[in-house]
């Protein structure tokens, strides 16, 4: 539960996204095969429930749009996205996570090594500012590598060796 409520304009935008998604769902459902060649009843058509859900989401999307307009969304039509630098933490985390999950895993590299590399890089990047200010960058890098190797090895051992779970 987030305490910070988004602005009415953000709600207007999200309402628009839901409405667009809902229209797409309804259109695809309408075009979906009704399986008449299988003598299927109209009440068992595969598109029936998704179509109804699409209509329900569309109604709620419209309600959200109306509510945000009443709350003054059109009088302050701007997104408080801010500078891209304000979001470097999320963007960096996203990039690191995607590189690990899509690039490193399944590339032939042993899982423990991929995990160790990812964890070490993540720790080093997000402790960089503090380490730099404290003048302990080299120590921080060393600790990050050791931490990564310990965690990568431990996860491999616990899952694959101890509990016989297949790792990616």
């Amino acid at each position: 539960m987030e305490d910070k409520k988004p602005s009415p304009f953000v709600d207007l935008m999200s309402g628009g996204v839901w409405l667009a998604l809902a229209i797409a769902i309804v259109v695809i459902s309408w075009k979906m095969d009704r399986l008449a060649h299988l003598q299927a009843s109209i009440y068992t058509a595969p598109a029936l429930v998704p179509g109804l859900l699409g209509i329900a989401i569309a109604i709620m999307g419209v309600l959200l749009i109306l509510r945000s307009v009443r709350a003054g969304a059109l009088s302050q039509p701007h997104l408080a996205i801010g500078n891209i630098r304000d979001h470097w933490r999320v963007l960096t985390a996203l990039a690191l996570c995607f590189v690990f999950a899509i690039g490193l895993i399944g590339s032939g590299m042993p899982f423990w090594l991929a995990a160790a590399l990812f964890i070490a890089a993540f720790v080093f990047v997000f402790q960089f500012e503090d380490r730099k200010a404290a003048g302990t960058l080299l120590r921080g890098a060393g600790l990050a590598v050791v931490f990564g190797l310990v965690c990568g090895g431990a996860i491999h051992y616990v899952f694959q060796e101890l509990f016989l779970v297949r790792l990616p």
């Binding site: 690990f100 895993i105 720790v123 297949r166 790792l167 990616p168």
Partner: peptide
């Protein structure tokens, strides 16, 4: 333990948890 150290481990566990 700093969260900068906990979170990457959590993500690795997320990938293992989804795959296995």
């Amino acid at each position: 333990v700093p969260q900068t150290m906990v979170m990457p481990v959590v993500f690795v566990l997320c990938t293992v948890g989804s795959f296995a």
